Simulated assay, not measured.
Amino acid sequence: MSVQGVEISPVGRTRTAPADNARPQNLRFAFASCQDYQAGFYTAYAHLAEEDLGFVAFLGDYIYEGAPNPNARRVHEGAGEPLDLAQYRNRHAQYKTDPHLQAAHAAFPWIVTFDDHEIDNNWADEIPQDPQLQTPSQFRARRIAAFQAYYEHMPLRAEQAQIRTAAEFVVENGRPGIASVTAEPVPLARTRTAGPIRAS
């Protein structure tokens, strides 16, 4: 892809899922998670990109919200933790500058979910890691900004652009499952939103 003839995006590849009635004999995929930019280099992704995989399942902590550590091998951009949309966009953009991470994204489709560091370490609902430093309204605004940047930078469809915050777990016939998931309405730049999800 070319943007005004200046920025050229490298060619990537993807795979589609098998047909509903297909019975694949095998499926190769990789798990990845917890990729703190300041904690080291992404050399594992260089090797991952050379594998023959169906997809990468990323289990969360795609970015870390920590302030720049001057003693790290690679230092986070910015002056502190990201708090607003521009700062979260910059943090995602910095992570995406890594050539090995770019190669892994170009090689496979990714299935992603978030954990805590995409927003704030160990946050829960409307409670940040440090509630004495962030009021509930400040943290809600921060959370909205973080989710917006996440959906702008991750391979998600527009109908997935709503945050799931509560799930009802049930056991049927001895097997655990999710009966329903409710979504918190978050103002995002995308126009289509998902409503509550009901498991079949």
Rank of each mutant, 00 (worst) to 15 (best):
residue 131 P to S: 13
residue 181 V to R: 12
residue 79 A to Q: 11
residue 112 V to W: 13
residue 185 P to L: 07
residue 25 Q to W: 06
residue 122 N to S: 00
residue 74 R to I: 01
residue 6 V to P: 02
residue 65 E to F: 05
residue 70 P to L: 05
residue 175 R to A: 08
residue 182 T to M: 08
residue 156 L to G: 03
residue 19 A to M: 10
residue 14 T to Y: 11
residue 65 E to I: 01
residue 155 P to F: 00
residue 101 L to N: 06
residue 118 E to T: 00
residue 20 D to L: 11
residue 72 A to I: 03
residue 141 A to M: 08
residue 117 H to Y: 00
residue 55 F to C: 11
residue 200 S to P: 09
residue 4 Q to A: 08
residue 191 T to Y: 14
residue 95 Y to K: 09
residue 136 P to R: 11
residue 37 Y to L: 09
residue 7 E to T: 15
residue 43 T to H: 09
residue 125 D to Y: 10
residue 151 Y to D: 03
residue 82 P to V: 02
residue 185 P to Y: 09
residue 45 Y to L: 02
residue 18 P to H: 08
residue 15 R to W: 05
residue 102 Q to N: 12
residue 42 Y to R: 08
residue 147 F to W: 15
residue 104 A to N: 09
residue 76 H to V: 03
residue 144 I to K: 13
residue 113 T to M: 13
residue 179 A to V: 01
residue 62 Y to T: 15
residue 189 A to T: 13
residue 50 E to G: 05
residue 55 F to R: 12
residue 152 E to S: 02
residue 42 Y to H: 07
residue 166 A to Q: 14
residue 105 H to L: 13
residue 113 T to E: 10
residue 193 T to E: 14
residue 199 A to P: 01
residue 39 A to E: 06
residue 180 S to V: 10
residue 3 V to E: 14
residue 162 Q to S: 07
residue 95 Y to G: 00
residue 163 I to D: 08
residue 95 Y to F: 09
residue 40 G to Y: 07
residue 186 V to N: 03
residue 132 Q to S: 12
residue 45 Y to H: 08
residue 166 A to L: 12
residue 116 D to F: 04
residue 141 A to H: 10
residue 148 Q to T: 12
residue 195 G to T: 11
residue 18 P to R: 09
residue 177 G to K: 12
residue 61 D to C: 02
residue 12 G to L: 04
residue 45 Y to M: 01
residue 43 T to R: 09
residue 180 S to A: 13
residue 53 L to Y: 06
residue 54 G to A: 11
